[in-house]
Structures are given as C-alpha cells and as structure tokens.
Write a protein that binds this DNA or RNA. Sequence first.
DNA 1: TTTATTAATTGCAATATTACGATTAATATT
DNA 2: AATATTAATCGTAATATTGCAATTAATAAA
Lengths: 110, 110
Amino acid sequence: MGLAKTEMFTDQQNEISLFAKVFGHPARVSILQHLFKIDSCVCGDLVNEIGLAQPTISQHLKELKHLGLIKGNVEGTSVCYCIHKENWTAMKTVMTEFLNQDLTQKQDCC
Amino acid sequence: MGLAKTEMFTDQQNEISLFAKVFGHPARVSILQHLFKIDSCVCGDLVNEIGLAQPTISQHLKELKHLGLIKGNVEGTSVCYCIHKENWTAMKTVMTEFLNQDLTQKQDCC
DNA sequence: TTTATTAATTGCAATATTACGATTAATATT
DNA sequence: AATATTAATCGTAATATTGCAATTAATAAA
C-alpha cells in the first residue's frame, strides 16, 4: 500500500487513525453492534448472523481483539467474545475529542 | 482488495464505515485538525505543514471533499479549503451514536 | 479412541491504498 | 506573450486489505 508515514504524525493522530481504521469496514461495525446488542456474549454465530465465511469473521475478530476493543474467552470448543468496556470507553474519549473539535466563530471560505 | 460486501450490511453500517475509513489515515486526521485550528481557510501550505508531497496531500483532500467533510474554493492559483460544518455535524451525529452504544448492565464473559 | 464441532491459521486471488515523480491545467504576474 | 505559482491528474511501484477454500488445532461427545 505504500506505508503510512506514521513517524511524521503525533501519537494522538496515529491513535485516532488506528481506531478509525478498524471501524472502516462494515463487517466490523456489524460485529461490534451485535456484541453490544446481545446480552450474553457471542461466539461463532456471528458467521450466521453476518453471512461472511468463518475465516473472514475470524480475521475481523482478530483485528478488533488486537486493538483491544473486544476480548475473547475460550469455552470448550467455542470462543465467547464481548466488548472490552474499559478500552471502549477510553477509545470513545479519544474519538469524541476529535469529533468535537470547535466549530464555532469561524466563517467559511466558500 | 476483494471488495467489501456492502450489500449485506445496513445503510447505517456502511455509512459509519465510510466515515471511519476516511479518518483511518493520520494524514487526513492531521489535515482536518489543521483546518479546524486555522481561523482562515488553508490551501497548499498543508504541504509544508504536514510534510508529504503535494500530489499526496491533494489526494487526501480529494477524499475528504468527496465525502463532503470539507469544501474547496478556488482563489486565483490556489485553492482554499475549509470544514463543511453542516456535513461535519451530521457525520458527528452518526458516529457519536455508534460510539455511545449502551455499555450498561451487561456483564463480561471474560 | 474416534468423531464432531468450533475457531484459528495458511495461502492465494482480487482489489484498494499510499506515495511520489512527471505532467497538465489554470490563473497571476511580469 | 512568457514565466511563475499552485494544485489536480496520471502512471506506477510498493504494500495492505478483503474474502475464501483448505487445512490445522483444540476440545467435546460418542
């Protein structure tokens, strides 16, 4: 892809972009929404729920876990996933700050 | 890349992922932050500010504009960019709703 | 122990992204 | 008109991502 030159950006900018990147695919958005919706934690029925192949779902789960937004617990042959609440909250703080940048008292150029 | 199967997701999920995707690169995060910081609108000094080549910056601006988050105004030989406030606010509503999904009264599996 | 179930890993094909040099387009300036 | 400045576009190389089939790993159940 031609790597992103992360060294020329701030830690904050890199962090924001990493979080955003993981939200940058509808399958991962869908997985997260499902994990929020379901009271008990979910495992492989995400495959049925979403309709992508098992290895594909597994990959997406891996990325979400790698970023710390979900955690997985082995239960027999299945793995139970759930939102990592503390990390989700921390992420939310970072992203919200970015989204809420000041919009006031500046006039458009256009 | 193997295209994302957008047809199997909701419009909302696709919209969230499109917004997130554009924030998924630190250069674009940086460009947006700069546009917010600078009172008057900015043009090509983003190149100096950020340190990527002019065609690269131009590409990133194009993506931001395509999604409607910024607008550009031609002023002589230069182009003046600024945040598209209405669209930014609308985007913020969508993203905030996603980030603020209910975290309460569910216990972890792990 | 054998078989079934579940999920991760590997390997691959298709496509997307990032970055930049070279060029082009368009307006300003001289 | 000639030149300078600014930014978009084109082409291309390098790398990343998505998705799946095939396989492997690991535990449960028989």
